[in-house]
Write a protein that binds this DNA or RNA. Sequence first.
RNA 1: UGGGCCGUCGCCAAGCGGUAAGGCACCGGAUUUUGAUUCCGGCAUUCCCAGGUUCGAAUCCUGGCGGCCCAGCCA
Length: 556
Amino acid sequence: MSHEPSKTNFIRQIIDADIASGRIAAGGVRTRFPPEPNGYLHIGHAKSICLNFGIARDYGGQCNLRFDDTNPAKEDPEFVAAIEADVRWLGFDWGDHLYFASDYFEALYACAEELIAKGLAYVDDLSAEAIREYRGTLTEAGRASPWRERSVAENLDLFRRMRAGEFDDGARVLRAKIDMAAANINLRDPTLYRIRRAEHHQTGNAWCIYPMYDFAHALSDAFEGITHSICTLEFEDHRPLYDWLVEHVTLASRPRQYEFSRLTLQYAVTSKRRLTRLVNEGIVDAWDDPRMPTIAGLRRRGCTPAAIRAFCERIGVTKSDNLVEMELLDACIREDLDATAPRAMAVLRPLKVVLGNVAEDHVEYLALPNHPKDEALGERQVPFTRELWIDREDFAEHPPKGFKRLVPGGEVRLRGAYVIRCDEVVHDADGEVIELRASIDASTLGANPSDRKVKGVIHWVSARFGVPAEIRLYDRLFNVPFPDREEGDFLAFINPASLAIAQGVVEPVLAAADVGARFQFEREGYFCRDAREPARLVFNRTVGLRDAWSKVAGRT
RNA sequence: UGGGCCGUCGCCAAGCGGUAAGGCACCGGAUUUUGAUUCCGGCAUUCCCAGGUUCGAAUCCUGGCGGCCCAGCCA
C-alpha cells in the first residue's frame, strides 16, 4: 500500500500503451509546455508544467518550452522572461529546446499555401461580424461565404498579397474549407490567418499576417515531433480541427492531442484576464503580490518549488472537475517547510513583560536549536533580558476555558528559557493592558519544576535586543470559493482582510536574514523575508501553523 | 433544445468484471519546552439514479438525472 497517491494517470497510461504497441519508442515521448507570453504563470500552469516536464523526465523523453506567440498585440517580452524564470524555479529544464511559434512563421505560411493549393483553404473578404453571422449558431448550421468558391489561383494571389501588406487590417482572412454545417462549430471554416499590423516581440515588423492558435499550434507540434500534445479540456472540441490540419498538411510527424481538466483552486482566480485586472486595477501590488496564485506570487510568499510540485502530484490528472481546496496547497507547503525551515521567534503583537527578579543589565545568551528534529540546522544564540516582548494573545486577564497561556498569578514557560509567573497587570487610563510584571523561576532553565506542572509555552523576544520588523499576514484573496461563478463582477468578492500588516519584533538573528529566506516563527507559522524590499526588514507569512486551539476556542 | 466531455467520501483520486487504495479535511486519543511536528485509531456494506447482462457489476448494456465546455479575425 502506497502512502502517496498513485503517480500514474490516464495520460501516462496512454503513453505506456503507445510504447507497448510500438507507436513510439521507449524514450521517444516528446511533450511541450506552450504558454502564450501574455501574463505570468499561475498554479494552473504549474499543473501543466509538472505533467509535461514530469512525463519527459520519467520516460527519458523530451519536453520543449514553446511560446505560443501568435498574437503580438497581447504579448510582451517581459512575460517571456518571467515565464522562463518561473519554469526554471519550479525545477524544470528544457535544455536546448526553447522555441517560439514565431520561429515557424515562414514554415506555417508554406503550410497555408499548401492548403490553398489543395483547395482546402480560401481567402474570405467577409467582415468579422459577417463571418460571425454566417457561422450559424449552436443549433443552426452555418452558411457558405460568397467567397468560399474562389479559384486556387485567386486564393493564392490574394493570400500572397495579404502577406505583402496590400490590404488593411481585418480586410480579409484565410479560412480552412471544411464544413459550414458541422455540428462542431470549430469545423465551420475556421480562420487560419488574419491581417494585423502589430510589431511582434520576436519578429518585429517582418509580418503583417499572423496565424491563429489552432493552425499554429497543431503544426508547431508536428514540426517539433511532439508525440503527445497535452492541453486542457476546453480544447477537446478543437481536436477534430487539430487532426484535420495534421492530416491535410504534408508533415514529417503526426502528433496527437490529449486533454485533461484544468485546475480550479478554491478562493482564487486563475484566468489570465482576471489576474491581469487584479494587477492593472491595483487590487494587488503586482503579478508577484503574495496573494496572487501566480508562481511568482507563491514564490514571494515563501512557497517552495518542492511544495508546488507535491501539490501538483497530489491533485492528480483526470478529465473530471479539479476543484481543489486551498487546504491541500497549505498542507503541501507546511509539509515541506516543517522539514526544512529553521525556527526563530517573532512577536507579532508586542506586549511588554518586565521580570522583577532579573537585573537591569542582565544579558544571558541561550543556545537554541534551529530545528527540533534536524540537528544539521545547528543552533543560535538568543539573548534573554529583564524586559521582553510577548504576544498579546498569549496573555488573558479573563481567560476562556482551556486557555493554557499566561494569566494573572499564573505560570507559563518561555520557549527555550525560564518559567515565569505573572505578578501584576499594568493598565492604562482606558483599562487597556499595557505591561506585565513577572518573575522567573531560576531553577527552570532546561528543567521542569518537580512540584508542579506548567502547561503553556509561549514565544518571546528580548526588548533590548529585539529588532522591529514589518510582518505581512496574508490570507485568501477572495471570500467565496468560486469567485468566477458568482453573479456580477468577481472583484466584489475580494477578501478585505487578505492582507494585515503587523509591526512586530523579531529576535536579532532575523535582522541578518537573506532576502527570500524562509523560517518558522514558532507557534505562528512560516514566513519569508520579502525580496521586493531588501532595504527594510519585512516578512511575508507563507502559511500559518495548524491551529487546534483556535478551533477549540471558536467553539465556545 | 446542436456538438463534445465528466459524475467513486466534504475536496482530490485509485480502481479497467472477482467483492471500495491513498492524500487533504474532519473526529477522537498518545507523546511533546511550538495548542506545531510525530504517532495510533475512526471516517463510502457502496460508487448520480433506474432497469438489464452475469455465478459475480463502480467496472459491460439501456434509459434517465446532474455538472462543465463550445457560436474570437484570443489562446
